[in-house]
């Protein structure tokens, strides 16, 4: 079977226990304003342009069949992309000597992904690690994601599914037999705010959370700390209370804000709400947030 991924990262050390390889499955139902992987939102491939790698050879302009690429000669940003006409056929990326132009989003077979994942088996075994499906959201291509997990489980490798749980109950249940640990994102407790900032209601998310909890799955809840959105005492406390009422043994991890994502928006030419001066929270701030969700 085939599906679309936008990255595979080896030596992932923050996506579950041990040393892991993470597969970034493309596509997501949510449109969080702060999304740190905006290139993974749409299922469609995306054309990236890194101006600092460009050597201004204009080879890409010459090969583009749609005339979507042009240049005004500005050396600091040599190529302009007309995203309305670009079909992301990838000819420019092939011709680009420096990979300043790259297509993000590759159609690959399950076999190819699994072969890549098996390369670091020794490291998984030694570290108690394994593989992690993330994204985007792996549930956006459920059959493909499931096919990877099923195949990987044949090798008795530890699996993690990181998801925002926006899928049908039937879909999410299919993952239970092949997932050793669920990393579940809960961002905003209030449904109106959730709808406003992520584009979808969290009713279905909460239902799925209950299902996984009831099925006695191994769960780690992760809350991204987004200044101005998710970081306030009320939201964090409500999430904490909600989770412990359902199952008191489920731990919650707070993920520090990642200011690095800002760059990707620039590259993609998409406006970004958190562009201005938002920093990592200090160790002291992180501690105070942790206090909020203490039992």
């Amino acid at each position: 079977m085939t599906g679309t991924i936008f990255d595979i990262k080896r030596f992932a050390i923050h996506d579950g226990p041990g040393i892991r390889t993470s597969v970034f499955i493309k596509g997501c139902a949510l449109r969080c304003l702060w999304c740190q992987n905006p290139e993974g939102q749409s299922l469609k491939p995306v054309l990236w342009y890194f101006p600092n790698r460009c050597i201004q050879c204009a080879e890409c302009i010459a090969v583009c069949p749609e005339d979507s690429l042009s240049s005004a000669g500005d050396k600091s940003h040599f190529i302009n992309i007309d995203r309305n006409t670009c079909t992301t056929c990838g000819k420019c990326a092939e011709a680009c000597p420096t990979t300043a132009l790259s297509i993000i989003g590759e159609k690959v077979t399950t076999e190819k992904v699994v072969a890549e994942l098996l390369k670091d088996r020794l490291f998984y075994e030694e570290s108690g690690g394994g593989i992690t499906l993330t994204g985007g959201d792996p549930l956006f291509q459920p059959e493909f994601s499931l096919s990877i997990l099923k195949e990987i489980k044949k090798y008795k490798i530890h699996t993690v599914l990181e998801t925002g749980m926006y899928a049908s109950a039937e879909t999410i249940k299919k993952f239970i037999p092949y997932t050793d640990l669920f990393l579940l994102d809960l961002k905003l407790f209030d449904d109106d705010l959730h709808l406003k900032y992520t584009g979808v209601s969290n009713v279905i998310i909460k239902q799925n959370f209950k299902i996984l909890a009831a099925e006695k799955q191994n769960i780690l809840v992760r809350v991204p700390l987004i200044p101005g959105y998710t970081v306030n005492a009320e939201n964090l406390k409500k999430i904490k209370r909600y989770v412990s009422e359902i199952r008191s043994d489920i731990p919650i991890e707070l993920l520090n804000f990642n200011p690095l994502a800002r760059d990707k928006y620039k590259i993609l030419g998409v406006p970004y709400d958190l562009a201005e001066n938002k920093k990592l929270f200090s160790a002291e701030e992180m501690e105070s947030f942790k206090q909020l969700i203490k039992d």
Partner: peptide, 8 residues
């Protein structure tokens, strides 16, 4: 640079 769920 390793950050959870993100790499650059």
């Amino acid at each position: 640079i390793r950050v959870a769920g993100y790499t650059a």
